[in-house]
Design a protein around this nucleic acid. Sequence first.
DNA 1: TTTGACTATGGACACGTGACCAGTATTTTT
DNA 2: AAAAATACTGGTCACGTGTCCATAGTCAAA
Lengths: 339, 339
Amino acid sequence: MANITDVARRAGVSPTTAKRAIHNPELLAPATLKRVKRAIAQLAYEPDQRAAALRSGHSRTVGLIVGNIDEPFFASLIRVISRTLRTQGYTLLVADNEYDTRNELQQLKTFQRNRIAGLILRSGYGKPNLKYVQRMKANDTAIVEVDFLMPESPFSHVMLDNAGCMKLGLEYLHGLGHRRIATLGSYHETILPDERTKAFPELMADLGLVVSKAYERIIHPTSAEAYRITHELMALPEPPTALFATTGNLASGAFQALRERGLELPKDISLLSFDNYPWTHMVAPAVDVIAQPVEDMGVAAAEMILREIETPDRPAEQVRFPGKLMKRGSCASPCVTIL
Amino acid sequence: MANITDVARRAGVSPTTAKRAIHNPELLAPATLKRVKRAIAQLAYEPDQRAAALRSGHSRTVGLIVGNIDEPFFASLIRVISRTLRTQGYTLLVADNEYDTRNELQQLKTFQRNRIAGLILRSGYGKPNLKYVQRMKANDTAIVEVDFLMPESPFSHVMLDNAGCMKLGLEYLHGLGHRRIATLGSYHETILPDERTKAFPELMADLGLVVSKAYERIIHPTSAEAYRITHELMALPEPPTALFATTGNLASGAFQALRERGLELPKDISLLSFDNYPWTHMVAPAVDVIAQPVEDMGVAAAEMILREIETPDRPAEQVRFPGKLMKRGSCASPCVTIL
DNA sequence: TTTGACTATGGACACGTGACCAGTATTTTT
DNA sequence: AAAAATACTGGTCACGTGTCCATAGTCAAA
């Protein structure tokens, strides 16, 4: 692989002059500039970013950790962030923690070894890595959290207005007449500090409803778990009349379970979900969702990390995006049966 | 950020000794080793991978370019490759060319600047970047192609048995009695040299069928394009009785168009698709698919690139995986109408 | 005692770059 | 004509690491 010295030799100039053809072309005599540029083209020279970063102290690399690449939400996030950063000359390192904080710790170390300039983090649940991330911050790594907050997180973040969206969804279901509402997802102060499921009982109380103890579960946010739980819930003596899935992944498991049980949407049960995933408008009836503005959130996160890198000591910037309820036919008034 | 000199100072040894605590601990006196290790822990020292790569000439970074992160096929590929490489201490750089070779060229340059040790490439269509990739190869970057081959590509690759899968699908449709079969996807020698659509007319001929000129289109492999084309095809005087989508993305566009036109699967039209995507078994009837062994292919590609990096001058390794036809209800014998 | 092998440690250098200082020839100003 | 400014080019060093060579001390074999 050619380096700047090879370029200089070929152009008959010193390495310093060759470097100037890249960084300060206005300093060179036109003829010299032309010679160097030709040498660069002939050798297909590309500067070594690692050496540049090492010397300059600025790495132009951002790390992104997501929860699960297989979920369209995260796939879109990666795509948008990657595109935004690329236009600014940044390279993106991507990792997928699979919602496991142990994977995440290893990934954080890898990022640290690569001396990333900034980290966009969708942490696995819980806060075991908070201390590690804080140390990265102390070592001048810019930090932005996305989609999920580590408890007591002091960092900048880009989030959905989760409580507001839960409210939106619950009021919709309540307005339709639902009283026995179950949420798919779960909250635990340290293990699963998820904002959506946390808000659920409080919002239910505001509506004068109580969450049946029988509906409460702690689950891992996978489609398979949602599938299993939905079967359990619907087999109860008093099954819910509406299911509110806190992620599109959970909804897909629930949807399959409901169909297997021969339950028809929205006659036998109502289903509402977060995430406007492709399948939700391909099935019949299409599933009502609370759509997240993923693209906007991704761009916001990317631009935020760039600002943080540029100005390390700026105060934390914390942004919330609203969700949008899309009514499509999977929710209706519950059948008044043998209540 | 602490460096090895800081560690050495804190442990009261020379930098060389501190380095040995990492690379050759067996050379150190037990007491010295312990002191250095404690210093490493106290400072949370992580070696600078960039400096290590610069000096050693071995970067331990692999670049991956996919066609479109939003497609589950690529998302799974990223996930599996990332996981496999991580276990071997490699870092993954991901880029998404959006099927555009101009994006791809920029991404290749970024990778080159980061001096990746290997490149796993799902190229955009056509071969404009073949020369650039060959030069990377000449500069000792290991190359593995996945899912798609640049024409006259001399590199190692991991591919689906595309022609075999097309044969499998066509014989299935033919066996059901279909004669007017259209494929969604398109072939062009230099612009869209896609193996699946290329095999289509030849295989049709083998079955004694001809492809209606009216069904031929050159399209970009997006869901929106498939949607548009499906509407066009079904509005023809002699519409196809079966649609064969060459990717899951195309199938989703086709599916929506068919539903909009009030066509029922499989009574009015049969639909067969590549890629066992989640939505294909959530809709009713579930869509028949040719499933790709994505995980196996990803692992194979990751292991292949590691071998190529390890042994640069090995002969090209070219592997094909078989697809699996999954019959689920979206294909049936065509209604014999006013033929 | 001398030689050689071994153990444990330290020092020098290069990877490719960016930042800074230094120099020479030419032109402009006083 | 001398001084100063300008235009252009070159040299030196450090970033943090891996690799190789060197040294001081110990101990066993000749």
